[in-house]
């Protein structure tokens, strides 16, 4: 019984939240890695693109709510998501045409693209703040829980409860659908294959008649859609605050590098590696150990490896370990 209680405790406070968080990071990292694979730079504006898109979703959600539209138990934000995605795609394409295309035509160094993306980051940041300000915004509605703590206790007869929030379930489902779509697109469609070909060998892709501008456009469309989906899921799961999205940049980059930057499958795996490490390292195991260990051995302290304030340190440490041991990442992404 104690073992089951410990397991439920661990599931409830580590596995379930980390899975949802991992799904969000995976989607973010997938976008970053696609941009890297095709445009060959680390997009510092990705976090703020997520924030911008999520802001659109929040606004549309509020609008729908005031009109009385709802999805019943599901959050209204799911209805607003396509509109947010469309808006962000427009923003990304306008940005590409007005900023990045120029450096592409000049074949500038990747670091110049990075600096340009810093400028873009400032602009996106300002746009988001103009419209919605800097405060926390909640936009979750519908049923909050799929599995409630009390119901679970009653059903299982255990002391510990298990809760699964609707937003967590939706996050995982949407993530699976989105990733499946992206992989299908990359592996099976002509355009997706052209993207991979361009990423693999730009010159040969040109010889084969693949239009770089078209590939770049598709890449931005995918990256923008992924950013908005990731941002909206994160906002539903936690809350929407623009600055938090900027801070997500670090775990997202860490996830992309861990998986092998430029490698889509790696980005997804990396997202979960980072999320599980972060949550497991910052979780206080006192409760779990109290169930598992004999009375005399029970810990007095929290048995927490790192305080939750240091969660970004986890991404960083993972990053450092990968850079030291295997700079190409798990799936051997591009190194140059």
């Amino acid at each position: 019984m104690d073992v089951l209680n410990a397991l439920v405790l661990f599931l409830n406070f580590v596995m379930i939240p980390a899975t949802a968080y991992g799904a969000q990071l995976a989607l973010g990292a997938l976008g970053v890695t696609l941009i890297y694979a095709v445009l060959r730079f680390s997009n510092f504006a990705h976090g703020d693109m997520m924030a911008f898109g999520t802001m659109l979703v929040v606004l549309v959600t509020w609008g729908l709510q005031s009109l009385g539209v709802s999805l019943g138990p599901l959050p209204t934000a799911l209805l607003a998501l396509p509109i947010g995605i469309l808006g962000t795609i427009v923003l990304a394409l306008v940005t590409d045409a007005s900023v990045y295309r120029f450096y592409r035509s000049k074949r500038s160094e990747p670091v110049i693209f990075v600096i340009a993306s810093v400028g873009v980051m400032f602009v996106y940041n300002a746009l988001t703040r103009f419209v919605i300000g800097t405060d926390d915004q909640r936009f979750e509605d519908g049923a909050r829980f799929v599995v409630k703590v009390g119901d679970f206790r009653k059903w299982s007869g255990l002391d510990e409860g298990l809760a699964i929030r609707t937003s967590q379930l939706i996050t995982v489902v949407v993530m699976i659908l989105t990733v499946a779509f992206v992989f299908w697109f990359l592996q099976k469609t002509r355009t997706g294959k052209a993207m991979r070909a361009y990423s693999d060998n730009e010159d040969l892709a040109l010889l084969s008649g693949i239009s770089p501008e078209r590939v770049v456009r598709i890449t931005w469309i995918l990256a923008a859609a992924l950013a908005v989906i990731a941002g909206t899921l994160y906002g539903l799961d936690k809350s929407f605050r623009p600055f938090t999205y900027f801070q997500l940049l670090l775990p997202i980059f860490a996830a992309a590098i861990v998986g092998g930057i430029g490698h889509p499958l790696g980005a997804v795996a990396g997202g979960f590696v980072v999320a599980y490490s972060e949550v497991m390292v910052t979780y206080a195991y006192k409760g779990v150990l109290t169930y598992l260990l004999p009375e005399a051995w029970r810990p007095e302290g929290l048995v927490q490896m790192l305080g939750t304030d240091y969660k970004f340190a986890v991404s960083f440490i993972i990053l450092v370990v990968v850079l030291l041991i295997r700079p190409t990442g798990i799936f051997r992404g591009r190194t140059i």
């Binding site: 160094e109 670091v111 990075v114 590098i257 960083f316 850079l323 190194t335």
Partner: peptide
Amino acid sequence: VSLGLRSDYLAIATLGIAEIILAV
């Protein structure tokens, strides 16, 4: 740790160290 690798690794590593220093 990060010099000698690709240029954006330094950018990302420094972005991280700054967050950690602030957290400490």
